[in-house]
């Protein structure tokens, strides 16, 4: 079954790189929706459902940490598998994200680390 993904990052180039990495991995990818900040992501999540969300942390308007806190408060997204892909993999950030149920993949990532995190998040 194809996996539908919400990809949130303020860099369009980084979104393309993540998409390309996932598509080349052989994991069956379905629909990919993209958002450039946390608020755009929440707007999309009001209307659509996904199997996984992939979140950046440093973004304008609403950052990834705020977005994830908001998602965990909502019935529809409180259990959605999430991976955080961020330049910030400090112990403080990793602990904050892990408390919200999301592993952190550090940028720059290798295709293997990203795909491994993706596969374990969807329970593969």
């Amino acid at each position: 079954m194809a996996i539908n993904i919400l990809l949130v990052d303020d860099s369009a180039v980084m979104r393309r790189l993540v998409k390309k990495t996932l598509k080349l991995s052989g994991v069956p990818i379905g629909r990919i929706a993209e958002a450039g900040n946390g608020q755009e992501a929440l707007d999309i999540l009001e209307k659509e459902t996904f199997d996984l969300a992939c979140l950046d942390v440093n973004m304008p308007v609403m950052n990834g940490a705020e977005l994830l806190k908001n998602m965990r408060k909502k019935e529809e997204t409180k259990d959605l598998p999430v991976i955080v892909v961020s330049t910030d993999n400090s112990p403080a950030r990793v602990a904050q994200m892990s408390a919200l149920g999301a592993p952190v993949v550090a940028k720059p990532f290798t295709p293997e680390t990203l795909v491994d995190a993706f596969v374990s998040a969807i329970g593969g």
């Binding site: 330049t87 400090s90 403080a92």
Partner: peptide, 18 residues
């Protein structure tokens, strides 16, 4: 992000502007 991660152990995360 990779530079601030080198600053040594800190108990809260850094915020980076866009």
């Amino acid at each position: 992000g990779n530079i601030v991660a080198q600053f040594g152990p800190v108990d809260s995360a850094f915020d980076l502007e866009a």
